[in-house]
Design a protein around this nucleic acid. Structure first.
Lengths: 148, 148
DNA sequence: TAAAGTTGGTATTTATAAATATCAATATTT
DNA sequence: AAATATTGATATTTATAAATACCAACTTTA
């Protein structure tokens, strides 16, 4: 039996992640400050990156370097994701949640105490985990609309 | 009775439009080449801009200058618009339309002979006219999903 | 406990997107 | 028919986003 690890297991410290991605440590922290990624944080506040994080960041890099989409562009595209459908938010829930109302950034950047997600760990949420890949958001919208 | 004109009436030649927007004539042509706008063209291929065009371009300017979203970012955001829902495309129609399948640019940039829109004038289409405003695309997705 | 790594912060550099300038050819206006 | 405006195309400039370099304080690991 091989020592397999889940794609979601946070294993790489920041320098290793940076090497795998061929970018600087600081760029990684910048992406986090911009709410593009949510790496795991140890109690010491040191970061750990999973294989999914690496894949996600490669996708972000491709959007920036190949597709020439700015970071603020990516944030706005993330904001198009209908998170409330994944979370099954009630009309009441939605009406006061800026992730539903605004289009300025991803839902996991919303810091509200009065939202359904207030006490949840966004890193383990399907909205964060499954819709960071380029094109997956339109995929969701497509599937959700055409299956109804 | 005042000499009223429809918001969609193409009335301003390019230099007037540029002055109203406080930008150069060339920037306007650049936005068009990038498929952000579809100004009316006279038989001589001279452009005319409507008040809706002016409003739309002001919105694009705000996205670029205030929200710091790159042109390619705006194109990708436009591509999130579920045009097939507005046009009531059949499953057959959708399956071969890249506006449905891709997420690289607005549907009106798709040049396909085998699409539902092949012989239509996109400038007069609701998808172009009503979803160029910032935020209107998320609005559409929101309303479409929550009304079902 | 010493060496190596990470933290958040600012200041600087670099790469490039966005806008401008210039051009001869064509169209419009009066 | 002359003056003015628009066309597309390329070459250049400018503004700034993205990335890098540096820092002292703190954490990990061996």
């Amino acid at each position: 039996m091989l020592n397999e690890v889940s794609k979601e297991e946070p294993i790489y410290p920041i320098r290793t992640a940076a090497k795998l991605l061929n970018i600087s440590v600081h760029t990684l922290r910048m992406y986090e400050k911009e709410d593009l990624i949510l790496p795991y944080k140890k109690s010491s506040s040191h970061r750990l990156y999973s294989q999914n994080d690496i894949d996600r960041i490669n996708c972000i890099r491709s959007a920036i370097n190949d597709s020439k989409i700015s970071i603020n562009g990516i944030k706005t595209i993330y904001s198009m994701m209908p998170c409330w459908e994944v979370m099954n938010c009630s009309k009441e829930d939605r009406s006061k949640c800026s992730a539903f109302l605004r289009h300025s950034g991803p839902c996991w950047a919303v810091k509200g105490d009065d939202t359904v997600c207030a006490n949840k760990d966004c890193r383990n949420c399907s909205v964060y985990q499954d819709y960071g890949e380029c094109g997956s958001i339109k995929n969701f919208i497509r599937n959700k609309l055409t299956s109804l």
